[in-house]
């Protein structure tokens, strides 16, 4: 049903109806943002990734061939871009001694619905930031996005066995880290 609606909206966009893109973007922007947010660990980068992904969606939608669902394709683009962002941040922090935390504090006072929400996300970031990128990816996709290993395999191009091993190591690390939270 969901895919039928997407199919219809994508075809309407291909026929030149700009509003169809707005409907698709409105439908998927939260999925994209929250996946990016949990992957990159701060709002500023997640906001950048979300905008980039929606722009990529706009550009690529005309050639979309329905080889996978739009949702899976968006996870793939968001995940790849988020990992690239993490890698860039790693280099930036080394070369320019960037302070990630000070970045996060800029202009986000009204972003969260409550102080408690802000604190919960900070605690989650502290835990997830300790995971290697690939473990973080499978942990976020499985734990927060609720995807099956088969769906994650389609997104990451990794084998289900390898993903299970990655998830196990992520669980082990998160369990240890949670003892301090």
């Amino acid at each position: 049903m969901v895919e039928n609606i997407d199919f219809e909206l994508i075809n309407r966009f291909k026929e030149g109806e700009e509003q169809a893109f707005n409907l698709l973007a409105a439908k998927y922007q939260k999925q994209v943002y929250w996946h990016a947010r949990r992957m990159v660990g701060n709002h500023i980068d997640a906001d950048d990734v979300t905008q980039e992904v929606l722009i990529v969606m706009y550009k690529k939608l005309k050639d979309f061939r329905f080889d996978s669902s739009l949702s899976t394709w968006l996870y793939k683009v968001t995940s790849t871009r988020s990992i690239n962002q993490l890698r860039k941040n790693k280099v930036k922090r080394f070369v320019f001694l960037d302070d990630q935390e000070s970045m996060e504090l800029q202009g986000n006072e009204n972003l969260y619905k409550s102080v408690e929400d802000r604190e919960k996300l900070d605690r989650l970031d502290r835990v997830l930031n300790q995971l290697p990128h690939k473990q973080r990816q499978v942990f976020v996709l499985r734990r927060f996005d609720g995807l099956s290993y088969e769906e994650i395999a389609e997104i990451t191009g990794k084998s289900v066995g390898g993903l299970k091993a990655n998830y196990f190591h992520a669980l082990k690390k998160v369990t240890e880290l949670m003892e301090n939270e």
Binding site: N22, A25, A26, Q29, K30, Y33, R38, T50, Q51, L54, I55, Y58, N110, L111, Y112, K113, D117, K120, L121, R123, L124, V127, R143, F144, L171, V174, T175, M178, E179, E181
Partner: peptide
């Protein structure tokens, strides 16, 4: 229970204004 706690950290909502302004920004 430890894992449920991690899940609860992820259950956060942002103010609607942020997502309402996303498409115009894009």
């Amino acid at each position: 229970a430890g894992m449920d706690k991690v899940d609860s950290f992820g259950k956060v909502e942002l103010n609607d204004n942020y997502f309402n302004s996303m498409i115009p920004k894009v």
